[in-house]
């Protein structure tokens, strides 16, 4: 029996060491180690998950179309990020339909100025409050469903008195009060989805020609506020019509106003990563020979309102 004792001791020692090895390995070697190779597989995911900071240059085009066109001459090949470095904060995705908001703001400014010029001309002719109200009602009868209201500001009330109750700003309307006090324009989209209404407030600041009649007002004060209300769907239609009018070679850029992913986010939209391939795949036999320069609207007609279809077909 004694002759096997040394073997049993050696076997015991080996068993202890094996057990210790297994315990140490379980505690000190990461679980994902060796999944793909001699490294921690989780690190690949960690590295992949990092958020890119610098965006591709053409992503600037999404919002800064005007500046993009300006970059010419010696700046033609200089990436925007060289001077206007994009960081995580700047490159944050746009909230809501910013393109539409910008379009609505520009349209509203234009319309407000036209309303104001009409009012100014009427006032110069000596029209009174009732006449001005009639003019507002007339201006509200337009094909875009835009409604026009005019509210008096402090200098006008001081000189001519408060407007009739029906023509006063609703009590507690914070936006109008803010526009009268600060003199800053504002645009708000209100209401349910697909029935949204844009409300634009255009403050009328006192300038030198106003003082001819508004003798108690001071330059810079807010004489009143023009309020424009219009259904957003009509505004979208108007925007699409404008886009359809754009020359064919700019059609892709035009689509980018709303479809910002076209160039800047190919990873999320692989179907348009390669435009040529995308066009070849979607081209129907009855459409004639494949035209790689075809505008998006050539196929995506169903996407746009009927009024645009007419333009495209024409």
């Amino acid at each position: 029996m004694n002759s096997y004792q040394h073997l049993s001791r050696a076997a015991t020692l080996l068993a202890i060491l094996l057990f210790a090895g297994i315990v140490l390995r379980a505690n000190f070697v990461p679980a994902s180690f060796g999944k793909w190779g001699a490294y921690r597989a989780d690190h690949i995911d960690e590295e992949r998950d990092r958020k890119p900071l610098i965006k591709a240059d053409d992503s600037c085009l999404d919002c800064h179309e005007k500046e993009w066109d300006m970059a010419d001459g010696k700046h033609a090949n200089v990436p925007c990020a060289d001077c206007h470095f994009l960081d995580g904060e700047h490159a944050r995705p746009l909230e809501g339909d910013q393109s539409l908001n910008e379009f609505a703001l520009a349209e509203s400014r234009k319309n407000s100025q036209m309303v104001f010029k009409s009012l100014f001309a009427a006032m110069k002719e000596g029209w009174d409050q009732d006449d001005i109200e009639k003019l507002s009602l007339m201006l509200s009868q337009n094909e875009w469903g835009m409604r026009v209201r005019v509210y008096r500001g402090e200098p006008v009330i001081r000189q001519f008195g408060e407007a009739l109750p029906a023509r006063q700003a609703p009590a507690g309307d914070v936006d109008i009060r803010k526009a009268l006090l600060s003199g800053e324009e504002s645009l708000k989209i209100e209401g349910e989805r697909d029935a949204e209404v844009a409300r634009y407030l255009f403050p009328l600041k006192v300038e030198t020609p106003c003082l001819e009649c508004h003798t108690k007002a001071r330059i810079g004060e807010v004489n009143g506020v023009i309020e424009l209300l219009y259904p957003l769907n009509r505004m979208k239609l108007k925007m699409h019509t404008k886009l359809a009018d754009m020359p064919v070679d700019r059609s892709r850029e035009a689509c980018q106003v709303c479809h910002r992913f076209l160039n800047s986010r190919p990873e999320k939209h692989p179907q348009v990563k390669d435009f040529d391939e995308h066009i070849k795949k979607g081209w129907k036999a009855d459409m004639g020979p494949v035209d790689l320069g075809a505008p998006c609207l050539r196929c995506h007609k169903a996407h746009i309102p009927s009024i645009v279809k007419k333009n495209v077909n024409a």
Partner: peptide
């Protein structure tokens, strides 16, 4: 043997 066991094996 323990040392060899501790070295992670490539997958």
């Amino acid at each position: 043997g323990v040392w060899v066991l501790l070295i992670p094996r490539p997958g």
